[in-house]
């Protein structure tokens, strides 16, 4: 049985709290716990136990948060601003090098792989 919440589909036997953490960018264990407590979902509640009103309440709650595309755009925007104002961090992002003063003689593998202005998040 599949439950759909805000365009994401969840397996029925997934814990609500864990499912939210897994599928929504910007929702961690803390936020998921807070949402579940607020809506009265008990800790071991599973996705298939969510009925229509509960899904609506959950959707309403999630829509108030800055998550998914909105959060990704904000992060990219912040990188872009750093570049535009000519800051060192912006430059390092553009060069694909570590931003926080790490060494580059060795290591820096992740930075070389990931850091760029239109970074994939």
């Amino acid at each position: 049985m599949v439950t759909n919440i805000m365009g994401k589909s969840f397996r029925g036997n997934v814990l609500v709290q864990a499912g939210l953490v897994q599928k929504f960018f910007g929702v961690g264990h803390k936020t998921a716990g807070e949402i579940c407590s607020k809506l009265g979902f008990y800790p071991r509640m599973r996705m298939h136990q969510l009925d229509e009103p509960r899904i609506l309440a959950l959707t309403k709650e999630l829509s108030t948060l800055k998550i998914e595309t909105e959060l990704r755009n904000e992060i990219l925007q912040n990188i872009r601003i750093k570049h535009e104002i000519g800051s060192y961090q912006g430059m390092r992002h553009a060069q694909g090098l570590p931003v926080h003063g790490q060494r580059t003689r060795t290591n820096a593998k992740n930075a070389k792989k990931l850091n760029r202005l239109d970074r994939r998040i």
Binding site: G33, E34, S37, K38, G40, Y42, P43, R44
Partner: peptide
């Protein structure tokens, strides 16, 4: 308990 109040 593992359960929490509405205020978490």
């Amino acid at each position: 308990a593992a359960n929490r109040s509405k205020e978490n």
